[in-house]
């Protein structure tokens, strides 16, 4: 019989729709899986952000994959607590992000400090730390737009949430 580890491995194949280089496992969106029987499985997921428009899509993709693998009944549970944090992103995920051209989250100062220094983010192209933030919001709400002062390439930074 298929065990939980097998399911976790299957889900490595389900990409995040907004950052397709990351799987839902890399992002830490899947919190638990439970095999009920040969044909039945329960999946617990948590949203990255409350308003993340990708959640329905992720659920659909997981359902399709598990159906393909022979499951007939797939039940989803959505949990909000503990709330998702970028700390749950796997090390493998951070490396994949960087290779894809998106700077992975770095430890940031408390969000309640006004005009705190923008975090030092390494340029994914040339590795320089001489970069500047252009905008708090990039191509999606979870990213900020940065530019490298050395190679001049603009790039996305996956913001820290905790």
């Amino acid at each position: 019989m298929v065990n939980e580890t097998t399911i976790w491995n299957y889900l490595e194949e389900v990409p995040d729709p907004e950052v397709p280089v990351l799987s839902v496992i890399d992002l830490g969106i899947v919190r638990a899986v439970k095999v009920i029987s040969e044909k039945e499985v329960e999946v617990t997921i948590t949203p990255t952000y409350s308003g993340c428009p990708a959640m329905n899509y992720i659920e659909k993709n997981i359902r399709e994959l598990l159906t393909e693998k022979g499951f007939e009944k797939i039940t989803f549970h959505t949990v909000l607590s503990p709330a998702w944090t970028t700390d749950w992103m796997s090390e493998a995920g951070k490396e994949k992000l960087l290779a894809y051209g998106i700077a992975p989250p770095v430890n940031e100062v408390d969000k309640l400090i006004l005009f705190g220094d923008a975090p030092v983010v390494r340029c994914p192209q040339c590795g320089s730390e001489n970069t500047k933030m252009l905008s708090q919001f990039g191509s999606t709400a979870c990213k900020a737009l940065y530019q490298c002062n050395d190679c001049l390439e603009p790039f996305d930074y996956f913001k820290c949430l905790r």
Binding site: S50, S81, P82, K111, R162
Partner: peptide
């Protein structure tokens, strides 16, 4: 649980 989730986002909004 909704509050815990929302608080993280709200800190960002407030800033």
């Amino acid at each position: 649980a909704i509050a815990e989730k929302s608080l993280k986002e709200t800190k960002y909004h407030w800033k």
